[in-house]
Simulated scan of single mutants.
Amino acid sequence: MTNDTITIKAPAKINLSLDVTGRRENGYHDLRMLMQTIDLYDELTIKKTAESGIHFSMNRELPDHIPPEKNLVWKAAKLLQEHCHITDGLDIYLEKNIPAAAGLAGGSSDCAAALIGINELCDLGLTLGQLCDLGVTLGADVPFCLQKGTMLSEGIGEILTRLPDLSPLWALLIKPDISVSTGYVYTHLKLDEITSHPDTEHLIDCIRRHDDASLARGLSNVLETVTIPEYPILAELKTFLSDNGAIGALMSGSGPTTYGLYQDEILARMALKKAKEQYPDYDVLLCRTRLPE
């Protein structure tokens, strides 16, 4: 960081579990999720400028082609400008590496990184709790992305309980060349027909005991009941990962990214090579379940 520029990493997340426990009158769903930061990240460079306003750019166009002022990074900057009466202009450049609309919270993490970076760059003095209170108004995953690590997430995603750090497992991510609407998935979720829910307490116990094999066997996401019938390729990907050394496989978020966990780096790299050969048009990425260095 210099006096007028800061660069911040924005790591992705995967769901170790995702349970929907109810639906509120306002249409929001009550969730119970186990979330884990991985070391795949976007990078934000934020610069103070003499010219007022916010200038936002990125290295590649997002699939939905939204204008800059609709991007969560721009919204985060605007929120802090107004909340803290920032007079400087802001030039923000986003280096996008996390696949978009993938169930990896890339947009929420970029938003969190913008809040952290502007807070530090402009010496605003906001606490992490204050940033979380502001962030949740922009997206339910933003508070998790601000705090990172291994967490139980409840409510609509804003109630967070920190858990012991997960073992540094390898995570092989495969994102098919399809877009999944989160709104569509939740709208078509039939809660009364779900017969199998994540055993969240058991998974938390596995995390506390560092029982990675039992944790991997218990990976569970109720949104698969909607997304997989709509996109059967995701079931194929889970089978591919399991057949190629993963100790567990799951769809993250509302999809379509599907990942496998590995304890053994050699197995993980062999699976990476095979996945790139078998699915050349998909995003195939090997990460670890830890904070970026």
Rank of each mutant, 00 (worst) to 15 (best):
T2M: 11
D4F: 15
T5R: 14
I6T: 06
T7G: 09
I8P: 03
A10Q: 06
A12I: 07
K13V: 07
K13N: 05
K13Y: 06
L18Y: 04
L18N: 02
D19Y: 02
D19W: 02
N26W: 07
H29Y: 09
D30W: 01
M33E: 03
L34R: 02
Q36S: 05
T37E: 04
L40A: 05
Y41M: 12
L44P: 00
K48N: 09
E51G: 11
E51T: 13
G53W: 08
F56I: 13
F56Y: 15
R60D: 12
D64F: 11
H65K: 15
P68H: 08
L72W: 02
V73C: 05
L94N: 01
N97G: 09
G103D: 03
L104A: 08
G106M: 00
S108R: 04
S109C: 10
S109H: 07
L115G: 04
G117T: 05
I118S: 01
E120Y: 11
L124C: 04
L126S: 09
L126I: 14
L134Y: 02
V136H: 11
T137E: 14
L138S: 00
L138I: 08
G139E: 00
F144E: 02
F144C: 06
C145N: 01
M151I: 08
E154P: 06
I156P: 03
T161H: 14
L163Q: 07
L166C: 13
I178A: 07
S179K: 12
T182E: 10
G183E: 14
K190P: 05
L191F: 09
D192C: 14
D192R: 12
I194T: 10
I194H: 07
T195F: 01
H197W: 08
I204V: 12
D212R: 07
A213S: 14
G218A: 09
L219D: 02
S220G: 12
L223W: 02
I228Y: 06
I228H: 01
I228D: 00
P229A: 06
E230A: 10
Y231W: 14
E236K: 12
K238T: 03
G245Y: 05
L250W: 03
S254E: 03
G255W: 00
P256D: 04
P256W: 05
T257S: 04
L261N: 03
Y262I: 00
M270N: 11
A271S: 10
A271I: 04
K273D: 12
A275C: 08
E277I: 14
E277K: 15
V284R: 03
R290L: 15
L291T: 10
P292Q: 06
